[in-house]
Design a protein around this nucleic acid. Structure first.
Length: 220
DNA sequence: ACCCAGGGTCATA
DNA sequence: TATGACCATGGG
């Protein structure tokens, strides 16, 4: 049986689960904060940390920059890695303010903006792409561990490609789609949803809409 | 008690 | 380039 195409995987996931309405967050800045805080961390824990910031009326770059490390770390406690993340989030906010805020950043080309994001200590490839796609509506495909694992199992990638190489493959395979921002947004969200709410609860994926994504693999 | 989560950095070879 | 240690809470 021939393997699915990248477009077919998307169609199947969308038909199976419907639109995911990502990224959770009311403002572009909240999305950016969430992107930093969710590094290797479950979203429910991130929500608590963001809730703490909101409760203190501290969900703004200026308030975060002005906050002592220990105080910020305390608010971020539920998100884990709180010392690391306090530093990273502050780094991000210092950069954000130094760039002149959202209105100035919006004017930058995607390439320039991506390089600038990656210059922030604590913002790696995936976090940068989360921010580009979900906060700036740029047509960038986000690669994460789920994406690599799923598409390796589907036989659509080798699995040992670098982040940039995988991103290039996805964007190349989806080069003909019209609404790239909309599709890239939905695609990544669907992959995460599938991994979290299907693969985890049904280890062998016997009635999986992708049929073979988990067969023969031990889901951990 | 163990595993892992919507990663990234840094030191080492 | 490519591993490994490290960061840390909360749910399954």
């Amino acid at each position: 049986m021939a393997s699915l195409t990248f477009n077919q995987v998307y169609q199947r996931l969308l038909r199976q689960y419907g639109p995911q309405d990502w990224w959770p967050g009311d403002t572009a800045f909240e999305i950016m904060v969430g992107a930093v805080l969710t590094q290797n961390t479950s979203w429910t824990n991130v929500e608590r940390a963001i809730g703490n910031l909101k409760q203190r009326d501290a969900l703004s770059s200026s308030r975060i920059v002005a906050m002592p490390h220990a105080q910020l770390a305390r608010l971020l406690t539920p998100a884990g890695y709180f010392n690391v993340k306090a530093t990273r989030l502050k780094n991000y906010c210092v950069w954000y303010e130094s760039q002149g805020g959202l209105s100035k950043l919006k004017r930058l080309s995607t390439e320039i903006l991506r390089k600038s994001l990656l210059s922030v200590n604590g913002v790696g490839a995936e976090t940068a792409d989360d921010i580009l796609l979900y906060a700036f509506d740029r047509p960038v495909f986000v690669i994460d561990a789920y994406t690599r694992r799923l598409f390796t199992r589907l036989g659509l990638v080798e699995g040992n490609e670098s982040y940039e190489e995988l991103r290039r493959i996805f964007e190349s395979k989806l080069a003909r789609v019209k609404d790239k921002v909309g599709v890239f947004n939905e695609y990544h969200a669907l992959i995460v949803h599938h991994a979290k709410y299907f693969c985890r609860t049904k280890p062998r994926c016997q009635d999986c809409c992708l049929q073979h994504c988990c067969i023969g693999a031990v889901i951990s």
